[in-house]
Amino acid sequence: MRFESPTTTKEAAALLTGELGDAYILAGGTDLLVRMKLGLIEPALVVDIKKIPATQEINVSDKGISIGASVSGATMSEHAKLNKSWPGVVEAANLIGSDQIQSRCTIAGNLCNASPAADSVPALIAAGAKAVIVGEQRRRTVPVEKIITGPGTTSLQKGELIESILLPKQAARSADAYLRFIPRTEMDIAVVGVGINLTLARGVIQSARVVLGAVAPTPILVAKAAKAIVGTKLDAQALENLAAACSDACDPIDDKRGTIEYRTRVAGVLARRAAVIAFKRAGGA
Protein backbone atom coordinates (compact mmCIF):
# COMPACT_ATOMS: atom_id res chain seq x y z
CA MET A 1 0.00 0.00 0.00
CA ARG A 2 1.13 3.50 -0.89
CA PHE A 3 0.45 6.37 1.47
CA GLU A 4 0.37 9.93 0.13
CA SER A 5 -0.44 13.21 1.81
CA PRO A 6 -0.77 15.89 -0.85
CA THR A 7 -1.21 19.55 -0.03
CA THR A 8 -3.73 20.57 -2.70
CA THR A 9 -7.05 19.10 -3.68
CA LYS A 10 -6.01 18.95 -7.33
CA GLU A 11 -2.93 16.98 -6.44
CA ALA A 12 -5.08 14.57 -4.45
CA ALA A 13 -7.42 14.16 -7.41
CA ALA A 14 -4.46 13.46 -9.68
CA LEU A 15 -3.17 10.76 -7.33
CA LEU A 16 -6.58 9.12 -7.19
CA THR A 17 -6.93 9.30 -10.97
CA GLY A 18 -3.51 7.87 -11.58
CA GLU A 19 -3.88 4.84 -9.34
CA LEU A 20 -4.89 1.67 -11.16
CA GLY A 21 -5.61 -0.33 -8.02
CA ASP A 22 -8.05 0.46 -5.23
CA ALA A 23 -7.55 4.02 -4.04
CA TYR A 24 -9.10 5.46 -0.91
CA ILE A 25 -9.29 8.87 0.65
CA LEU A 26 -8.30 9.20 4.28
CA ALA A 27 -9.68 12.08 6.33
CA GLY A 28 -10.77 10.86 9.77
CA GLY A 29 -10.20 7.23 8.91
CA THR A 30 -12.87 6.06 11.32
CA ASP A 31 -14.57 3.99 8.62
CA LEU A 32 -11.60 3.33 6.34
CA LEU A 33 -9.38 1.79 9.00
CA VAL A 34 -12.20 -0.39 10.31
CA ARG A 35 -12.71 -1.80 6.83
CA MET A 36 -8.99 -2.39 6.45
CA LYS A 37 -8.83 -4.10 9.85
CA LEU A 38 -11.74 -6.40 9.04
CA GLY A 39 -10.08 -7.31 5.76
CA LEU A 40 -12.97 -5.94 3.71
CA ILE A 41 -10.64 -3.81 1.60
CA GLU A 42 -6.96 -3.85 0.70
CA PRO A 43 -6.09 -0.41 -0.64
CA ALA A 44 -3.31 0.03 -3.13
CA LEU A 45 -3.26 3.73 -2.36
CA VAL A 46 -4.45 5.82 0.56
CA VAL A 47 -4.53 9.58 0.08
CA ASP A 48 -4.53 11.51 3.33
CA ILE A 49 -6.26 14.84 2.63
CA LYS A 50 -5.61 16.41 6.01
CA LYS A 51 -2.61 18.37 4.79
CA ILE A 52 -4.74 20.18 2.23
CA PRO A 53 -5.53 23.61 3.73
CA ALA A 54 -8.86 23.88 1.89
CA THR A 55 -10.14 20.78 3.69
CA GLN A 56 -9.18 21.99 7.13
CA GLU A 57 -11.25 25.13 7.51
CA ILE A 58 -14.68 26.23 8.54
CA ASN A 59 -15.45 29.40 6.54
CA VAL A 60 -18.36 31.70 7.22
CA SER A 61 -19.48 33.89 4.34
CA ASP A 62 -22.60 35.61 3.02
CA LYS A 63 -23.49 32.41 1.24
CA GLY A 64 -23.36 30.26 4.32
CA ILE A 65 -20.86 28.13 6.12
CA SER A 66 -18.36 25.91 4.38
CA ILE A 67 -16.96 22.95 6.31
CA GLY A 68 -13.75 21.44 4.98
CA ALA A 69 -13.67 17.74 4.29
CA SER A 70 -11.18 17.00 7.02
CA VAL A 71 -12.80 19.12 9.73
CA SER A 72 -13.57 16.81 12.65
CA GLY A 73 -16.82 16.52 14.55
CA ALA A 74 -15.06 17.92 17.63
CA THR A 75 -13.95 21.01 15.69
CA MET A 76 -17.50 21.53 14.46
CA SER A 77 -18.85 21.40 17.99
CA GLU A 78 -16.45 24.14 19.04
CA HIS A 79 -17.51 26.55 16.26
CA ALA A 80 -19.92 29.07 17.78
CA LYS A 81 -21.42 30.43 14.58
CA LEU A 82 -21.97 26.94 13.15
CA ASN A 83 -23.69 25.84 16.33
CA LYS A 84 -25.93 28.88 16.27
CA SER A 85 -26.92 28.52 12.62
CA TRP A 86 -27.16 24.77 12.26
CA PRO A 87 -27.52 23.11 15.67
CA GLY A 88 -29.15 20.07 14.07
CA VAL A 89 -26.22 19.48 11.75
CA VAL A 90 -23.77 19.83 14.64
CA GLU A 91 -25.72 17.51 16.92
CA ALA A 92 -25.93 14.94 14.14
CA ALA A 93 -22.19 15.16 13.51
CA ASN A 94 -21.50 14.91 17.23
CA LEU A 95 -23.54 11.75 17.55
CA ILE A 96 -21.00 9.88 15.45
CA GLY A 97 -19.08 7.68 17.85
CA SER A 98 -17.21 8.45 21.02
CA ASP A 99 -15.04 11.44 21.91
CA GLN A 100 -12.16 9.47 20.38
CA ILE A 101 -14.06 9.17 17.09
CA GLN A 102 -15.16 12.81 17.29
CA SER A 103 -11.54 13.93 17.20
CA ARG A 104 -11.25 12.36 13.77
CA CYS A 105 -14.57 11.75 12.05
CA THR A 106 -15.76 14.12 9.34
CA ILE A 107 -19.14 14.82 7.76
CA ALA A 108 -17.64 14.48 4.30
CA GLY A 109 -16.40 11.03 5.26
CA ASN A 110 -19.73 10.15 6.79
CA LEU A 111 -21.31 11.12 3.46
CA CYS A 112 -18.81 9.25 1.27
CA ASN A 113 -19.06 6.11 3.40
CA ALA A 114 -22.65 6.13 2.18
CA SER A 115 -24.13 4.10 5.01
CA PRO A 116 -27.93 4.30 5.04
CA ALA A 117 -27.59 4.94 8.77
CA ALA A 118 -25.06 7.80 8.59
CA ASP A 119 -26.03 10.30 11.28
CA SER A 120 -24.93 13.53 9.70
CA VAL A 121 -26.42 12.94 6.27
CA PRO A 122 -30.14 13.37 7.06
CA ALA A 123 -29.30 16.58 8.90
CA LEU A 124 -27.22 17.84 5.96
CA ILE A 125 -29.94 17.05 3.45
CA ALA A 126 -32.55 18.70 5.65
CA ALA A 127 -30.34 21.76 5.81
CA GLY A 128 -30.04 21.86 2.03
CA ALA A 129 -26.28 21.33 2.11
CA LYS A 130 -24.19 20.91 -1.00
CA ALA A 131 -20.93 19.11 -1.53
CA VAL A 132 -18.04 20.78 -3.34
CA ILE A 133 -16.49 18.06 -5.47
CA VAL A 134 -13.07 18.36 -7.01
CA GLY A 135 -11.75 16.20 -9.81
CA GLU A 136 -8.58 16.51 -11.82
CA GLN A 137 -10.46 18.33 -14.59
CA ARG A 138 -13.44 19.94 -13.02
CA ARG A 139 -15.04 21.22 -9.90
CA ARG A 140 -18.74 20.83 -9.24
CA THR A 141 -21.20 21.58 -6.51
CA VAL A 142 -23.86 18.96 -5.88
CA PRO A 143 -26.76 18.77 -3.41
CA VAL A 144 -25.90 16.25 -0.71
CA GLU A 145 -28.95 14.12 -1.49
CA LYS A 146 -27.48 13.45 -4.93
CA ILE A 147 -24.29 11.92 -3.56
CA ILE A 148 -25.43 8.64 -2.01
CA THR A 149 -26.82 6.24 -4.59
CA GLY A 150 -27.16 3.14 -2.45
CA PRO A 151 -25.61 1.40 0.57
CA GLY A 152 -21.88 2.06 0.24
CA THR A 153 -22.09 3.65 -3.21
CA THR A 154 -21.90 7.29 -4.30
CA SER A 155 -22.17 9.32 -7.47
CA LEU A 156 -18.54 10.43 -7.14
CA GLN A 157 -16.47 9.51 -10.20
CA LYS A 158 -13.03 7.93 -10.04
CA GLY A 159 -10.56 10.64 -9.19
CA GLU A 160 -13.10 12.88 -7.52
CA LEU A 161 -13.14 13.89 -3.90
CA ILE A 162 -15.20 16.15 -1.70
CA GLU A 163 -13.31 19.24 -0.67
CA SER A 164 -15.95 20.78 1.53
CA ILE A 165 -19.60 20.75 2.50
CA LEU A 166 -21.49 23.98 2.03
CA LEU A 167 -24.35 24.81 4.37
CA PRO A 168 -26.59 27.60 3.10
CA LYS A 169 -27.14 30.70 5.17
CA GLN A 170 -29.89 29.80 7.60
CA ALA A 171 -33.02 31.86 6.97
CA ALA A 172 -34.62 33.98 9.65
CA ARG A 173 -37.01 32.23 12.07
CA SER A 174 -35.61 28.90 10.98
CA ALA A 175 -33.96 26.02 12.76
CA ASP A 176 -32.97 22.44 12.35
CA ALA A 177 -32.82 19.42 14.61
CA TYR A 178 -31.64 15.85 14.39
CA LEU A 179 -32.63 12.87 16.49
CA ARG A 180 -31.73 9.26 16.19
CA PHE A 181 -32.62 6.10 18.01
CA ILE A 182 -29.98 3.75 19.34
CA PRO A 183 -30.38 0.91 21.83
CA ARG A 184 -27.63 2.16 24.12
CA THR A 185 -26.96 5.77 25.06
CA GLU A 186 -23.79 5.97 22.97
CA MET A 187 -21.56 4.07 20.55
CA ASP A 188 -24.30 2.54 18.39
CA ILE A 189 -25.23 3.00 14.76
CA ALA A 190 -28.58 4.70 14.23
CA VAL A 191 -31.55 2.36 14.03
CA VAL A 192 -33.57 5.34 12.80
CA GLY A 193 -32.47 8.94 12.25
CA VAL A 194 -34.55 12.02 11.51
CA GLY A 195 -33.31 15.43 10.39
CA ILE A 196 -35.74 18.32 10.15
CA ASN A 197 -35.20 21.89 9.06
CA LEU A 198 -38.08 24.35 9.12
CA THR A 199 -38.90 28.03 8.66
CA LEU A 200 -41.69 29.90 10.38
CA ALA A 201 -43.72 32.87 9.30
CA ARG A 202 -45.86 34.41 12.02
CA GLY A 203 -45.59 31.28 14.06
CA VAL A 204 -46.76 29.04 11.26
CA ILE A 205 -44.45 26.63 9.48
CA GLN A 206 -43.83 28.08 6.07
CA SER A 207 -41.44 25.51 4.71
CA ALA A 208 -39.79 22.35 5.94
CA ARG A 209 -37.47 19.58 4.93
CA VAL A 210 -37.81 16.23 6.64
CA VAL A 211 -35.19 13.55 6.05
CA LEU A 212 -35.10 10.00 7.35
CA GLY A 213 -32.02 7.86 7.84
CA ALA A 214 -31.58 4.09 8.32
CA VAL A 215 -35.05 3.28 7.00
CA ALA A 216 -34.20 2.86 3.31
CA PRO A 217 -31.15 2.08 1.15
CA THR A 218 -30.29 5.79 1.23
CA PRO A 219 -31.37 8.67 3.44
CA ILE A 220 -34.72 9.89 2.12
CA LEU A 221 -36.14 13.37 1.80
CA VAL A 222 -39.84 12.95 2.55
CA ALA A 223 -41.86 15.66 0.82
CA LYS A 224 -45.14 14.34 2.21
CA ALA A 225 -43.80 14.66 5.73
CA ALA A 226 -42.89 18.28 5.12
CA LYS A 227 -46.31 18.86 3.64
CA ALA A 228 -47.92 17.43 6.76
CA ILE A 229 -46.57 20.24 8.91
CA VAL A 230 -46.34 23.18 6.50
CA GLY A 231 -49.09 25.66 7.23
CA THR A 232 -49.49 24.41 10.80
CA LYS A 233 -48.34 25.49 14.21
CA LEU A 234 -47.31 21.92 14.81
CA ASP A 235 -50.51 21.03 16.61
CA ALA A 236 -51.22 17.48 17.67
CA GLN A 237 -52.90 16.60 14.40
CA ALA A 238 -49.97 17.95 12.38
CA LEU A 239 -47.56 15.91 14.45
CA GLU A 240 -49.63 12.81 13.95
CA ASN A 241 -49.76 13.43 10.21
CA LEU A 242 -46.02 13.98 10.19
CA ALA A 243 -45.44 10.71 11.99
CA ALA A 244 -47.73 8.85 9.64
CA ALA A 245 -46.08 10.34 6.57
CA CYS A 246 -42.66 9.37 7.87
CA SER A 247 -43.69 5.84 8.72
CA ASP A 248 -45.28 5.55 5.28
CA ALA A 249 -42.09 6.61 3.57
CA CYS A 250 -40.00 3.92 5.27
CA ASP A 251 -38.63 1.05 3.26
CA PRO A 252 -36.33 -0.53 5.80
CA ILE A 253 -34.79 -3.94 6.27
CA ASP A 254 -34.78 -6.39 9.15
CA ASP A 255 -31.27 -6.64 10.47
CA LYS A 256 -29.19 -6.96 13.59
CA ARG A 257 -29.98 -3.36 14.47
CA GLY A 258 -33.74 -3.35 14.17
CA THR A 259 -36.82 -4.80 12.55
CA ILE A 260 -38.87 -3.37 9.68
CA GLU A 261 -41.79 -2.96 12.03
CA TYR A 262 -39.72 -1.20 14.64
CA ARG A 263 -37.95 1.18 12.31
CA THR A 264 -41.18 2.13 10.59
CA ARG A 265 -42.87 2.87 13.87
CA VAL A 266 -40.02 4.75 15.50
CA ALA A 267 -39.36 6.90 12.42
CA GLY A 268 -42.71 8.54 13.10
CA VAL A 269 -42.02 8.92 16.81
CA LEU A 270 -38.64 10.55 16.27
CA ALA A 271 -39.97 12.80 13.52
CA ARG A 272 -42.53 14.18 15.95
CA ARG A 273 -39.90 14.77 18.58
CA ALA A 274 -37.39 16.33 16.20
CA ALA A 275 -40.06 18.62 14.73
CA VAL A 276 -40.93 19.90 18.19
CA ILE A 277 -37.28 20.70 18.87
CA ALA A 278 -36.77 22.48 15.55
CA PHE A 279 -40.04 24.36 15.96
CA LYS A 280 -39.01 25.63 19.39
CA ARG A 281 -35.57 26.55 18.18
CA ALA A 282 -37.09 28.57 15.35
CA GLY A 283 -39.08 30.53 17.89
CA GLY A 284 -42.36 28.71 17.49
CA ALA A 285 -44.75 28.35 20.37
Binding site: P183, R184, T185, E186, M187, D188, I189, D255, K256, R257
Partner: peptide, 16 residues
Protein backbone atom coordinates in the same frame (compact mmCIF):
# COMPACT_ATOMS: atom_id res chain seq x y z
CA UNK B 1 -23.02 -14.76 13.39
CA UNK B 2 -24.00 -11.25 12.33
CA UNK B 3 -22.67 -9.17 15.18
CA UNK B 4 -19.20 -10.41 16.01
CA UNK B 5 -17.92 -7.08 17.31
CA UNK B 6 -18.40 -4.65 20.17
CA UNK B 7 -20.28 -2.24 17.88
CA UNK B 8 -23.32 -4.44 17.44
CA UNK B 9 -22.95 -6.74 20.41
CA UNK B 10 -23.64 -3.72 22.63
CA UNK B 11 -22.21 -4.22 26.09
CA UNK B 12 -23.17 -1.41 28.48
CA UNK B 13 -21.17 1.79 28.15
CA UNK B 14 -20.52 4.20 31.00
CA UNK B 15 -23.47 6.44 30.12
CA UNK B 16 -25.87 3.48 30.13
Amino acid sequence: LQNAGFLDYRIPVCSD
